[in-house]
């Protein structure tokens, strides 16, 4: 399609204005508010015990969720691409469920299941707390990040086909050796991209976690909860500072994402 010069410039201006108003202004405003009193004030806010605890908790959740989703994601992707079993269509559909279900609903359903009055509520009586503690937040984050690794690895598996794996088998490799030496290296960039998406989503998760956490400062408060709680407590500056830390993490993820995205499309 050929677009005349004047309309082209108009289109570009509209697109830029749209991005500017919707993305750059809010983010820029937070950065401005965070640093308007200088780096020192920012530093004081992000090194409070509550801030440090929130960062640690968020990273802890990410550190548990990522390996689980990597193992599970590769397994499901292999089953979807290579498997020949009944119910594959059903499996395809439920993998995308987290995209369709609002995180708040995920949180509520977890409470229904694991809460004191839930199906597995008995666990709480023997001292295993799921809701209002780390396991609940991990479960919530696992749920919302479940599709990423599967959906990034699946097309790569499709593309590489299974001839290389068959060749490895004829050369004497058993299933495990074939997986480590052939399959895993072949999907590595797709997998890395899926991991980065998972990390980004896990960092930013709020809806589901806010339901299953009681948000006790310094204990069960993730970074997103910290931002929200400080905001509600009218500690606006503290809220902006925490938000900036969160954005910093996200920025790292974004950069890695771009790198892996490039590699996986090139490989």
């Amino acid at each position: 399609m050929k677009v005349e010069r004047a309309p082209r410039i108009a289109l570009r201006t509209v697109a830029l204005a749209y991005l500017f108003v919707l993305l750059l202004v809010p983010v820029g405003l937070i950065l401005f508010r965070t640093f308007e009193n200088g780096i020192g004030a920012f530093w004081d806010q992000v090194t409070t015990p509550a801030s440090i605890s929130a960062m640690a908790l968020t990273l802890e959740i990410v550190a548990i969720v990522v390996p689980l989703n990597v193992v599970f994601g590769i397994f499901v992707a292999l089953a979807l691409v290579r498997g020949r079993f009944r119910g594959r269509g059903f499996m395809q559909a439920i993998v995308d469920l987290p995209f369709a279900v609002s995180p708040v609903i995920v949180g509520v359903s977890l409470v229904l299941l694991w809460g004191v009055n839930g199906w597995f509520g008995g666990l709480a009586e023997v001292g295993i707390r799921v809701i209002f503690s780390l396991p609940g937040m991990v479960l919530a984050t696992l749920f919302v990040t479940l599709p990423f690794v599967v959906r990034e690895v699946e097309p790569v598996l499709h593309e590489i086909g299974d001839e290389q794996e068959q060749a490895a088998a004829t050369l004497g490799a058993n299933g495990w050796q074939t997986f480590w030496r052939i399959t895993l290296p072949s999907i590595r960039w797709g997998l890395a991209y899926g991991v980065v998406l998972t990390v980004a989503r896990a960092l930013g998760e709020f809806g589901a976690v806010s339901v299953v956490s009681n948000g006790v400062s310094g204990q069960s408060e993730t970074l997103t909860l910290l931002v929200a709680n400080r905001f509600e407590d009218l500690n606006l500056f503290g809220s902006y500072a925490a938000a900036t830390v969160l954005m910093g993490f996200a920025l790292v993820a974004l950069v890695l994402m771009t790198v892996f995205e490039r590699r996986s499309t090139r490989a």
Binding site: I160, E163, Q164, Q166, A167, A168, I182, S186, A267
Partner: peptide, 8 residues
Amino acid sequence: FQHYAAFK
């Protein structure tokens, strides 16, 4: 294999 199945 016809399409080589080289380990890329």
